[in-house]
Every structure is written in structure tokens, then in C-alpha cells.
Write a protein that binds this DNA or RNA. Sequence first.
DNA 1: CTAAAAACGAACAATATCGAACATTGCCCA
DNA 2: TGGGCAATGTTCGATATTGTTCGTTTTTAG
Lengths: 251, 251
Amino acid sequence: MNLRHQEILNLTRQQGKVGVTELALHFDVTEQTIRRDLNALTEAGQLARVHGGAIIPSGVINLRYEDRQALAQAEKEAMAEACARLIPEGASLFMNIGTTTETVARALLSHRDLMVITNNLNVANILAENAGIEVVVAGGILRRSDAALVGEVTAEFVQRFKLDYAVVGAAAVDLDGSLLDYDYREVRVTQAIIQNARSSILVADTGKFRRAAPVRIASLAELDVFVTDRTPPKTIRKLCKTAGVSLVVTS
Amino acid sequence: MNLRHQEILNLTRQQGKVGVTELALHFDVTEQTIRRDLNALTEAGQLARVHGGAIIPSGVINLRYEDRQALAQAEKEAMAEACARLIPEGASLFMNIGTTTETVARALLSHRDLMVITNNLNVANILAENAGIEVVVAGGILRRSDAALVGEVTAEFVQRFKLDYAVVGAAAVDLDGSLLDYDYREVRVTQAIIQNARSSILVADTGKFRRAAPVRIASLAELDVFVTDRTPPKTIRKLCKTAGVSLVVTS
DNA sequence: CTAAAAACGAACAATATCGAACATTGCCCA
DNA sequence: TGGGCAATGTTCGATATTGTTCGTTTTTAG
């Protein structure tokens, strides 16, 4: 690792690609040095080398965690605030995976006397700041890409509880209302969370409709509230209406 | 902790990276002093050192914890190495609470194909670096003081597994061989860990004999190996002999 | 298809950074 | 006052990174 590496990765994520000459000027080093950096990062699997520069590695796996964090931050915060307002003080709730969920956790920091069960270690970390929140971590297999705990054992853990709310995020949402994720091990966990919550809230920005992921974890119709940033597509609105899902749009 | 440390952390978080020379100028001290600062912060897991400076650590989890006792770091590492040598590659093991356990985790980073179940989030964080280790987090109530997961539910989680080894740490060890902790919720967890491991290893420096804690979590006699830094008191040696606990002294 | 231009990697020299050891300073407390 | 201790400064050999050069490969322009 090198002082420039992190910044090179950030630049690449922002622009999709970087050029050797461009980076050499940016950092005021020779091109040969930049080549060495790019090759090292490629070696580490963080970039894909192309003639003249580098690009984000393509593949079936999820976007890197840090990338997703940066997406649509302002919208996420508005959604998070709206979601937090739905949850009264003293409530108990599940929170699952997703950077959106983490933003909700931050918005919940000013609540008191909550009990939160989560399979997302980042959420646990955020909520740990507030001593008035009892944080329970659901056990399971550690998924390194986003510090989530997944697997059958996590689902069984969740089933030992029955809480007031569930705050659910997803990697993608299909236009038929399917919540999608990259990891089949997440399926049973989120299902269990929804089943064992008296009221379930999906928090997802509309960008999620433009993404795809292979594994179906649940259907929007099984939930009670859908918090999003902009008016969702018509099929989704219709689904919400027929399934009795109340829609909260924050913009 | 040093006056500069907090500001270095702030600067690093702001800029994503800091350079040795840059900081030396900023604080008007020599580069060597800055290097010492950076290395100390890296040791504490708050920064990641790179040639020429430091960056934000890449770890997925970063629970803040009280300033850990850096006392006897060298001894701890020797114990950790000795403990790691007891564990073959490909093994499955439990690891419980304690900063000593965390040091063992670091020593295990060079092992391959391990499966580790832990109720210590710091251990999970450390082991996450090595993709060859499957990390399973035991669920439970988050104890903020040391990022441990505790409670009845954690014990039940542990009981779903039967692993090769247990690496056990404790807040204090009484001269009668009792392992002690500050929190009654830890009791059942460590008991369950010991019961469900084919071989249990206690790792504790002799300083633990001079400390006290209110809750008895288990007895040394229930374990199989005791790794420590110096020859323990006579009563303990006798206990090990009669109970068939093999003693490993690293100094 | 060919030739020029750009990009590339290997090798080596130049430079910067590092850590260990020891010297120095400044502060606390007897 | 002065001895102990921790933090900092200094020096220097070891190590890592960077710049430079040059022959080779890839891309681009015609």
C-alpha cells in the first residue's frame, strides 16, 4: 500500500477510468511510478489495467462498499430522517444490510431507549455511540465486502425475537417489486427479519430500480412501508396500492 | 495518548491520508517523532501505516475502545505466537473476549483455512484481513467497553457448534484457578465455548493473577492448555498438574 | 499494411524514508 | 537540588521508493 493508492482508487471510482499521464501530472511523479502503482493495485484485484491507464474491475460481484457509500448521500439522508420519524422512542427493531440502513442508523442516534438487533456490523458500530440504545448483534458468517453477517444461523438467531419494526435495505429492487441481493445467504435473514417484525420498512433510493442483483430476498408486497427519495415507477406504485404498502417519498 | 495523536487522526480523516514530512512541519517536530506517533496509532489500530505517511485503516469494523493496556506487549506477542503454534492449519476454533485473545488473532493471520467463531468483534475485525479464514460472529448483546458480544443468546449460539479448539482469555485469574470477568453475561458464553471445544487453551499473562474481577466464569481445571509468559504461582502449577492441564511458559 | 507515436516493463542509479540506538531536554517529585 | 522518567531530537546504516534510460510492444494515423 502506498499514499497514492487510496486516492487513485477514489479517482477511478469517480470517473470510471484513469490515465497514466493524467495521474502522473496529478501526483507530480513520473509515469513509471504511476504504472507501478496501477500494477500493484491490479495485482491486489482492486483495478483492471488497460493500455494507458486503468478502470474499475468488471465482474459479478457487488460494487465495493466504499463506492456505494458515496452514492446519493443527500437523498439517503433525507430518506433516513423520514424513516427515523416513523420509529417511536422506546421501540425495538431489526436493521439489516445496506449502506442506506447505515444512514438510518445514524439518524436514529438521537432516539432513546431503543433495542436494535442487526446483522450489519457497521450499524452496530454506529449505534454503539448512543448508550441509550441496546445493540444486539445477530450472529453469523462474516461477509467481508460490507461487514454483514449472513447465513442460516443468522436467520435462526433472528427468529428468536419478535420486534416492533424492521428497517430493511436491499442491493437492488426489481420493477416487479422483488428485493434483490448478491448473496443467497442473505435471503433467509431478511425473510426472517420481515416475518418477525410487526411492521416492516423498506428504505431504498430510486437508483436501486436501475440496478440488478441475482438473488431474490423478498417482495415489496410483504412489507408495510416503503421509504424512497423520488416517486417510483408506475408498476411499483401500483404494487404498493394493491398490497397495502404505504409509500413515503421524501423529495 | 499524546496531544498530537487526536489531531493527526482528525487530519487523516479529513484528507484520507497524511505524510510524515507534512505532519512534521505542521507540528514543528522532527519526522522521527511523527513516525513514532504514526506507529503508535497504527499499533492501536487507528491508522494504517504506509511508506511516507499513513492512511485510514481499511478494516470493515472499527469499534472504538478504551485505551488498551499496552503493558507487556512483547510478552503478549510471545504468548500469542506460542498459542498460534498449537493450532494447526485447517482447524476450527472459538475465540472469546480479552485483548490477549486479540493478539492471538493477529498471530493467527498467517494461518490458512481456519474457521473461527468469536464473540469478540475486535477479533473478527483482525481476522477479516485474511480471506483464508472463515469468520463467524456469535450473536449477542453488544458490550461497549470491549466490543464483546455477551448474554444467554450468545451461549446458545455457541452451542450449535463443536470445534477443535477454544482460545480463551479472561479479565483476571484467581490463585485458586478461577477465570474471572466483570460481566455475568460472559459466564455462560465462555462455559459454552469450553464445553464445545475438543481442546481449550487459556492465554493469560501472569499480570492477570494480580488483578481481580467479580464474576467467576470457569475454572482453569476445565481447560487443556495454559499459555502464559512467566512461571505462574505455585498453587496454579499444582492445579495444572493435578487437573492435567499442560503449561506453556514463553519466556 | 506500414510507420510513427505512445505506452510499456526491466534494470539500475538516485533519492527518500525507515527504525534502532543513543543523546538531550523538560518535567515531576522526593 | 537533583535524580528519574518520558518525550523528543540526532545520527546513521538499512530498506523502499522513485527517476532515468532504453529496448520492446501496442496503438494510432495515414
